[in-house]
Amino acid sequence: MKKYTYTEKKDTRSGFGAGLHEAGKKNENVVALCADLVGSLKMEAFIKDFPERFTQVGIAEANMIGIAAGMTIGGKIPYTGTFANFSTGRVYDQIRQSVAYSNKNVKICASHAGLTLGEDGATHQILEDIGLMKMLPGMVVINPCDYNQTKAATIAIADYEGPVYLRFGRPTVPVFTDPDQKFEIGKAWMVNEGKDVTIIATGHLVWEAIEAGEQLAEMGIDAEIINIHTIKPLDEEAILKSVQKTGCVVTAEEHNKYGGLGESVARLLATTQPTPQEFVAVNDSFGESGTPNQLMEKYGLTDKDIVKAVQRVLERK
């Protein structure tokens, strides 16, 4: 098992804030919109340096999506910022018609995704957003794993022409990826090469997968770990290549088991190479109030849950 270390923990939303600021410096067409959550989305640096390119829309997400779509007509690259819940479910029809169907170059940037939003509870903890967004034709869906990767993704999507859903979170998590990484949309990142089982993880679950991989190594199980930061388009080649070698797969995500990364992988494998698969995901449930760690434990999204899933899938090989 390749050794991963970290010296600090940071929130991925801060990676977004830093990336937005950089993207703004690189391209004058980058504009930002927010629905009354500037602090939560860490947009202050962008607003300070580019006040005329920032639009505060107030608590009116539907209007924000429509305005963003309109701003693309005139060559702007709008980044909309609010919580994942209000970025997707609340404005699904606006995204569907004015952004996705109209093929507008809007970057829908969604913080506080999943259970790790914590104490606010289930009204704010969306676990269905990946599914909602990946079902839209032409929508790119990205869920990076740490601060550095989120920052790199935020900068990279400005150079991609078309609608993007960028998902990140609130808690501080280990920073373990390269600060100077080149982010390629749709290109999986090989975290660890192994031969016994493939663990495919996205977002906050990538670090959990690394910790699981270390425990599995001690048990004599050689896990291959892949970071799928882009859920759509899926890097099918990387997944098939790995599964052909290992013969079984565990997917891990902070999302409902319905509609998430796991189902995308299952569809790929079912149609090309049927393979035993176990899902580390929320079991068709809403969340609740609690600390992020408590919630991840209660809903089965930790390194230990990945280890158990690997043990189950190995028996089915």
């Binding site: 209007n63 429509g66 305005i67 779509a69 701003m71 007509i73 569907r96 004015s98």
Partner: peptide, 30 residues
Amino acid sequence: TTHEHLPGVRIASGSLGQGMSVAIGAALAK
């Protein structure tokens, strides 16, 4: 719809209530 690239159309509409926001966005870009 813009989907079929008909000249003159810049956004899809039909699901009601979205056009004023879009027009505002285009005006802000101008």
